[in-house]
Design a protein around this nucleic acid. Structure first.
Lengths: 127, 127
DNA sequence: CCCTTGCTTCGAGCGCGCTCGAACTCCTAG
DNA sequence: CTAGGAGTTCGAGCGCGCTCGAAGCAAGGG
């Protein structure tokens, strides 16, 4: 006997509001396989589960940290392939983390340069 | 009487190596006005001065920190317009810095999430 | 019964930022 | 005198990542 737990679901519009992706983009990501197929209401409308939402957020994170769609897709395919790909996944994530750390270092350096430039301009203005 | 100082110059290939932009991109940036016209040798070849190189580096910094070409162009036009635009320039830079700081915060957050994910996978691997 | 709202699919289109190739010129080395 | 190499201009092309619009359908309210 199973206990029927009515799980909370989200419409595409709600997921859009939560993640910052437009409904168009959410459907596009699903189309290209970046997101798995989302369950539907009888009407045919998408009903995202909490899990689905988690995967959307994960993909958003990959994309915002500069991973290409092709590489993100590759990672998601590894994930769906099962537990034997965990070694591969950890290698991908480590490489990506290293890229990100390098990226952060560059941005910090640039931030310093911009702040110095602002200071110089402000010095010129004070006369 | 002026002292003729033979200033050090750089070929497009050298500027490319220094800045990471391809020669194609350097010419493209000049074409669209993102970089000022560079002095030429008698042969017609570009000879970047130290100053030119500095501006290339500055533009690279704007682009790498996520400023669009259109906005970078706007800033460079302000710069060329003269000292009366310093107020505007400082406003643009401050806004851009604020964007950058926000961007950095997001990336730091994502870095933390990726590291946690790696840890989880490593935990799974140790069995 | 019809209108509105909110979603659906599908294919085409588009903006950004390069990227490339063709044809040409100039300079230097052999 | 010739060949090679590094640069030039110009216009076209392209890859990425959406973005959009048309046409359709299901559910609810007046």
């Amino acid at each position: 006997m199973t206990t029927a737990t009515a799980e909370r679901t989200y419409t595409i519009e709600q997921v859009s509001a939560e993640t910052g992706l437009t409904p168009h983009t959410l459907r596009y990501y699903e189309r290209i396989g970046l997101l798995e197929e989302v369950p539907r209401a009888v009407s045919g409308h998408r009903r995202y589960t909490e899990d689905d939402l988690g995967w959307v957020r994960f993909v958003v994170m990959l994309r915002q940290t500069g991973m290409s769609i092709a590489d993100s897709l590759h990672f998601m395919e590894l994930t769906r392939a099962g537990d034997h790909t965990i070694g591969d996944r950890v290698r991908v994530l480590r490489a990506h983390r290293d890229d990100l750390v390098a990226q952060l270092a560059v941005l910090q350096r640039h931030l310093g340069a911009i702040n110095r430039k602002i200071d110089i301009y402000e010095g010129l203005l004070e006369r």
